[in-house]
Structure formats: structure tokens, C-alpha cells
């Protein structure tokens, strides 16, 4: 039990602000990345179900390119490789962009599934009423799809918060990095990792439970036809 010795815990509590700073960076990065992921996801999700072939191809390309390469590689590319092409993104921007674009691809799939779950007749009805395609999406399809996609979207948010720990690999100052750096310099990794695990759990677990409850409600209201996306 050496690695959880009392003096190591005391040292951690003395330096608590270090973890707090990290938590702040995690929250701001995850928050902004989530907004970006949502924007990209809705854009490419709508494109994926659009009547134009080029739109579907672009969406397909984005999703497969991003979903089939590791997040670590994408972030390392932004961080280490882009500067060689004279594009120097600050570290926090690398975090938001990397996470946003990565999860945007998953949100795209969620949005696409949500739109496809709405009966096609609704789109046709709206179009026949004189709505343009974009208007029909905006006022008829997306509001209904939103209810269906809420649970898987929440799960994406949880995944994004967890994945924001990738910042630790590029000196990003997030919660994971701060704990890692602190425990590396002191050698007291036991208390640091355990505390950080508890913090992530306290954020992610309630969100995951919320998603589960919503999922249950959607399933009941839609007669059990929708399975987890």
C-alpha cells in the first residue's frame, strides 16, 4: 500500500488547485468540441440523407476517413505535422478541432439514423406543401429526429469527455495531463490517478444514466422498434 501512503494524499490535497485548473481546461475543451461536433454532425448528417449524390459522397468520405483512423494519430497530425506546412494551431485549438472533427463523424451517423427513422412520407408531405428541402428538414424532420437522437448523442458527449484526455499526450493542460504531470514530478501517482478517475466517473456516470433513461422513454414511445444506434 506504499503507493497510497497518507503523506502522498496530503501532498495531493495541498496541490488541489492543479487538478482544478485541469478540470477547467477539460470542461472548456470538451464543451467547445461538443458544439463543433454537433454542428458538423448535423451538417453532414443532413447531407448523408440528401437527394444529391455529391452531398452523400462528401458525407460518406468524411465519416470513413475520420472513423477509420485513430484519434491519437489525428491529433498528433494537427500538433506535430501541420506546423511543417506553416500552420501552427495553438494547443487548445488542436484539442477542440481534433475532438470536434473526430466525434463529428460519429454524430453524423447518429443524425443520419435519426433522420432515416422518421417516415419518408413526412418529407414528401412537407415538400408537396411547398417547403424547400432545407425548410422541410429544419421545420419537420430534424425536430422529430432530435428526440430519437438525444440518447445516442448523450453517449457521444460522454465519449467526447473521456477522449478529451488525449490532451494529456500533447501537453494540453487538461485534467488527465495535470494529474499525470503532478504524479510524474512527485512520484505520488496512486492518489492522483484514483482522484482523477473519481472525477471522470462523477461527470460521465450521471450523463450515461440520463442517456439510458431517455433511451428507455424513446423506445417505449416508439413501440420498441428503435434499438441503440
Amino acid at each position: 500500500m506504499d503507493r497510497f501512503a497518507a503523506f502522498k494524499w496530503q501532498a495531493l490535497f495541498r496541490d488541489w488547485h492543479i487538478l482544478l485548473e485541469g478540470l477547467g481546461r477539460t470542461a472548456s475543451t470538451a464543451g467547445l468540441a461538443l458544439l463543433l461536433a454537433l454542428a458538423l454532425g448535423v451538417l453532414f448528417g443532413v447531407l448523408a440523407t440528401a437527394p444529391w449524390r455529391s452531398g452523400r459522397t462528401v458525407s460518406r468520405l468524411y465519416v470513413s476517413l475520420i472513423q477509420n483512423t485513430p484519434l491519437v494519430t489525428q491529433v498528433f497530425f494537427l500538433y506535430y505535422a501541420l506546423p511543417h506546412f506553416d500552420i501552427m494551431l495553438p494547443t487548445p485549438v488542436v484539442g477542440v478541432l481534433g475532438l470536434g472533427v473526430y466525434h463529428g463523424a460519429y454524430v453524423t451517423e447518429v443524425v443520419r439514423a435519426g433522420i432515416q427513422a422518421i417516415h419518408r412520407g413526412q418529407l414528401e408531405a412537407a415538400l408537396s406543401q411547398g417547403f424547400s428541402y432545407v425548410q422541410a428538414m429544419r421545420y419537420v424532420i430534424l425536430p422529430q429526429a432530435a428526440q430519437i437522437v438525444l440518447p445516442p448523442m448523450t453517449n457521444q458527449a460522454v465519449a467526447l469527455i473521456k477522449n478529451s484526455s488525449i490532451l494529456a499526450m500533447i501537453s494540453g493542460g487538461d485534467l488527465m495531463f495535470q494529474a499525470d504531470s503532478w504524479s510524474a514530478s512527485t512520484g505520488y501517482y496512486g492518489p492522483a490517478y484514483l482522484t482523477v478517475w473519481a472525477i471522470y466517473f462523477a461527470i460521465c456516470f450521471p450523463l450515461a444514466q440520463l442517456a439510458r433513461r431517455w433511451e428507455e422513454r424513446v423506445r417505449l414511445s416508439r413501440g420498441g422498434e428503435v434499438t441503440a444506434a
Binding site: 500538433y79 506535430y80 505535422a81 501541420l82 506546423p83 511543417h84 501537453s171 499525470d180 504531470s181
Partner: peptide, 16 residues
């Protein structure tokens, strides 16, 4: 701070 030396070297080369 970086976990490994190659990463610090890559950061130096890229001007980070």
C-alpha cells in the same frame, strides 16, 4: 511537458 524524448524532439522540429 512531454512523456517521451522523441515527442520533445518532434515538438522542437515543428516549432512548438
Amino acid at each position: 511537458e512531454f512523456a517521451t524524448y522523441p515527442e520533445i524532439k518532434a515538438a522542437l522540429d515543428s516549432g512548438r
